[in-house]
Design a protein around this nucleic acid. Structure first.
Lengths: 348, 348
DNA sequence: TTGCTCTGCGAAACCGCTTTCAACTTTATC
DNA sequence: GATAAAGTTGAAAGCGGTTTCGCAGAGCAA
């Protein structure tokens, strides 16, 4: 019996294993892929040698041979946003269970970068791409980007958390209307009628939907709509929430409850409210969206919409795998829940 | 001239390009790799066809052929922690500039998972691994893990942000002693003498170093060391900071300044302090480490240690590439800075 | 014209795995 | 005990690139 020469930096291959086990590479490959047509003793011997050298088959070779990488590319706007981080992590875990690896890219909300990364993922021959945030959040899809995605979809399926009109992307979306409905029913049940919405832009699909539901809920309870209780165009960060809330208060508006467009904006809103000498929630209730750990860091802790990231991530991965296999539905809605904490209370 | 059949889901290859350009695949490969020995007109024609079909060479094939993936694996404890997210993002950008792609994995501080992911990265044949947080943060290295890493290092260089005694990992580390020194000099210059350190565990290398420097700084200014001003064993999250600060105050200790072990712990400390009716910074100054956006979310915003993530990430990638090329130094220290915000002030 | 160097380019080998195909063994069936 | 069916196995092709090698032709000196 021959022995492998001590492995000097070169990873060992299936051939090395085959030689030592006195079988052909094909047989080693069979045990690697779980093919059952290998005699028990041989399988055992091969497995022992694999174990002994801690052999890991080269994923590039395997991928090349099978023309699939077993990698799912995940394109997010910015992992520093805990919403994306949570979702990515959930995807990573779900992917692992399904036998896939995951490759994360950050677009930083820059379309050029987004297109570059798509190309990058194509080059890696990922089996599917999940795009979370960025261009796919737009209420009206950017045509140039649609074209780009269609070109990619020629060879690789794309799943999005928003929508991309003019493409056949599968969608896994949060039911934003439902989320707003939950908040409104909750706040109204606490006696609030002067409810503001702060932060975000109605050019973003989910925000647009939230605003639509906001008005529907007002209507349902016969509360008149006051345009001044909706903040103008904003972004999704702390500063924006802070500034917009300041402006609203400066205008003399004094809602008893504020719905911030996400946890970041809620942080800004809370700063502003506290600075103006109001108490939370005694004078003004503040609620947010996302239930990231920010909600727990804030003081008081934030009542917010919860998405069940585990489930959301799992759904995304499932959709991706369905897309790879050419099956599954086009759209799936994820139902949000309400996480009640200290920042909200009855109207005084 | 022949024309490619409309691309029906199968990515086109170098051979398709070659056929249409009426050259050999070798020539196409030459223009792809930037080899200069191709006549101008041919190069131009080939490039046009590549452009026309938006051809991207298969990274697996290329990687297999060159026996290198051009991927750097990045193993972090948990991207949901903005410290890791920031650092990862910086690495991603630096890697891109250097022509590398990056593959992120989360160990979730679970050693089994950590070992699993190392194997995963080996299987992908990444060119180098950067491990940020997790086992490499331990003050005394876990022997089993050291063995695992040594096995990996047989074929793939590993760079760590901590240390791993018994391995030849390159290290790129924050100068934690310097960081603590900055905070102590700053607080002492503001007149503080009763300075507490809350959160973290001295079984973690960086925390250990911080505590060493803490005592050195006290000594320098002839301030007696009070063991009750150092919190016992803690973790690095909000709850821990909250609980430990509560305990310290309950013991009757009343520091005028608190150094929280990171931004999360600082959030907890601030909750506790405010709940006890003290003002920040008038009664108690609170400072933290990491300068993640949490520092800005907190109210008042947090004075904290800043790491210059861009530079840190760049250094990590450089170290990885150096390791791939078998050069560079073993250890590099990154110098931290101080970011002064509203949570700290003069002793009253 | 001969001899040499250079440049440009195709044939073919190779990277490390999977899979088809055909041949060879076993085992089951009657 | 003959024959069919099922189980094992290795040779070889193929995945899509890169690279070596050698050949052909150009350019230049002698």
């Amino acid at each position: 019996m021959q022995v492998l020469k001590p492995n000097e930096g070169k990873p060992i291959t299936i051939y090395d294993i085959a030689r030592e086990a006195e079988v052909s590479p094909a047989t080693v490959s069979r045990v690697l892929t779980g093919n059952s047509n290998v005699r028990k003793e041989k399988r055992k011997k091969i497995l022992e040698i694999i174990e002994k050298y801690n052999f890991k088959p080269n994923a590039m070779a395997r991928g090349l041979s099978e023309t699939k990488s077993k990698i799912i590319g995940i394109l997010v706007a910015d992992v520093r946003n805990p919403f994306y981080a949570e979702l990515f992590l959930a995807c990573e875990q779900a992917a692992k269970l399904a036998g896939y690896t995951v490759m994360l890219c950050n677009s930083l909300n820059n379309m050029e970068q987004e297109e570059y990364l798509l190309d990058q993922l194509v080059q890696q021959r990922v089996d599917a791409i999940i795009q979370i945030g960025g261009r796919v959040d737009d209420l009206v899809s950017n045509m140039e980007y649609v074209e780009k995605v269609n070109q990619v979809m020629n060879t690789i399926p794309v799943v999005v958390t928003g929508k991309l009109e003019g493409t056949k992307c599968k969608m896994v979306r949060i039911d934003s209307m439902k989320a707003m409905e939950l908040l409104m029913e909750y706040l109204i049940s606490l006696g609030h009628r002067d409810i503001a919405v702060v932060g975000g832009s109605d050019k973003v699909l989910s925000t647009y939907e939230k605003l639509v539901q906001y008005r529907l809920s007002l209507q349902k309870y016969h509360i008149p709509f006051d345009p001044d209780l909706i903040s103008p165009e904003g972004t999704y960060n702390v500063e924006s929430g802070y500034r917009l809330m300041n402006e609203m208060l400066a205008k003399g508006k004094r809602p008893t409850a504020v719905i911030a467009i996400n946890d970041f904006a809620a942080a800004g809103v809370m700063h502003s409210v506290l600075e103006h000498g109001y108490r939370i929630p005694e004078d003004i209730s503040v609620v947010g969206y996302d239930n990231t750990y920010i909600s727990q860091i804030l003081n008081p802790s934030l009542t917010t919409i919860d998405y069940n990231y585990q489930y959301y991530g799992k759904s995304l991965i499932e959709a991706a795998i369905d897309a790879i296999e050419g099956k599954g539905e086009l759209l799936k809605l994820v139902t949000p829940g309400l996480m009640i904490r200290g920042s909200s209370g009855s109207r005084r």
